[in-house]
């Protein structure tokens, strides 16, 4: 009879285990990747060709969210010239959940204005990166944040591909993450559009079901193919976002990251993350077992010596 060696036994076990793990993770990845957002979630289509840079949306956001007074009046166009480190235009802060940026595009008759706020991803990177589950994607489409459970690690700020969450560094006692919540608690959950959408005089933003907005966006492009680039930013980027954009200038020329890919950020780390629970639960028991086995002989020897 063939003797079963310890080495071959371990080898077989490893191969088998790896196979099971591989099958398990691939199945898991498929299931999680199929989530394309809530079917009836709401969204906003932003037509950048229509924005005139009046900043009424910023004023409306400030009022609706009860934010502190701004550093400059909301009708002061000098903010467009403000630059932060690296010559980059201004971004969202703890005091401003939305900001309008100005781009002087060569060859374009007028400057292009771009409204920046949380894009409310279908599968948000902030949500998946948060280890205390402070974030929630509501069926209406808003990405919400719960400051009561937040521990202030700011991983969400690193994870966000759009650099949106801001941090209340001004608060020494209870600093929290601050970002656009799509006016969820005051408007969206009652079926009303966000305050910025309603305030915009040009109706740059169209509010509606995300699936309806996608049809509208493609209809606009096909009706006026010369007025738009043939791309709806946010349709597929990072798995799709609730806020989507139409432009007459290629998106990479006006500060949009066009290299984000169509996969939700979570899918890049999903396979690694699937191993984490296994490492945390199986490895301690396994190696404790090895340790006890290898020390068993010594224990027995000690007992022998005693007797």
């Amino acid at each position: 009879m063939k003797k079963l060696h310890r080495r071959s036994f371990l080898k077989g076990g490893l191969v088998g285990g790896a196979a099971i793990a591989a099958v398990g993770t691939s199945k898991h990845a498929e299931a999680a990747g199929s989530f394309g957002g809530y079917p009836d979630s709401m969204g906003v289509l932003v037509d950048l060709t229509k924005c005139v840079g009046c900043r009424t949306c910023e004023a409306a956001c400030n009022k609706e969210q009860g934010l502190p007074a701004p550093d400059k009046s909301f009708d002061d166009p000098s903010v467009f010239e403000e630059k932060r480190e690296g010559g980059l235009p201004r971004r969202t802060t703890e005091k401003a959940y939305t900001v309008v940026q100005k781009y002087d595009v060569p060859g374009r008759e007028h400057p292009l204005f771009r409204k920046v706020q949380c894009n409310h991803c279908n599968e948000p990177a902030c949500l998946t990166s948060c280890f205390v589950n402070a974030y929630k994607k509501t069926p209406e489409g808003a990405v919400m944040y719960d400051p009561t459970v937040c521990v202030g690690c700011r991983t969400c700020m690193v994870a966000c591909p759009f650099y949106i969450p801001a941090y209340s560094y001004s608060s020494a006692i209870n600093p929290v993450v601050k970002k656009c919540i799509m006016c969820y608690d005051t408007r969206l959950k009652f079926g009303k559009p966000p305050a910025c959408v309603e305030a915009c005089p040009q109706e740059v933003m169209t509010f509606g079901k995300r699936k309806d907005l996608l049809k509208l966006a493609h209809q606009r492009i096909s009706e006026k193919p010369d007025a738009y680039v043939d791309h709806v930013y946010g349709e597929n980027e990072v798995g799709g976002t609730a806020w989507m954009y139409l432009s007459d200038v290629p998106f990479d020329k006006i500060g949009y990251d066009t290299h984000l890919g169509d996969q939700p950020i979570i899918s890049y780390v999903k396979e690694f993350l699937a191993i984490v629970p296994m490492v945390l639960t199986i490895w301690p028991a396994l190696f404790t077992g090895f340790h006890l086995l290898s020390n068993r002989k010594d224990g027995l020897k000690n007992e022998d010596n005693k007797s």
Partner: peptide
């Protein structure tokens, strides 16, 4: 009041330290 303009305009900052590190 809505635009924080006119008599509701914010007082100019003494140090001008907006976003200046």
């Amino acid at each position: 009041a809505f635009f924080h303009s006119g008599k509701y305009a914010p007082a100019p900052k003494a140090s001008g330290g907006h976003g200046g590190g």
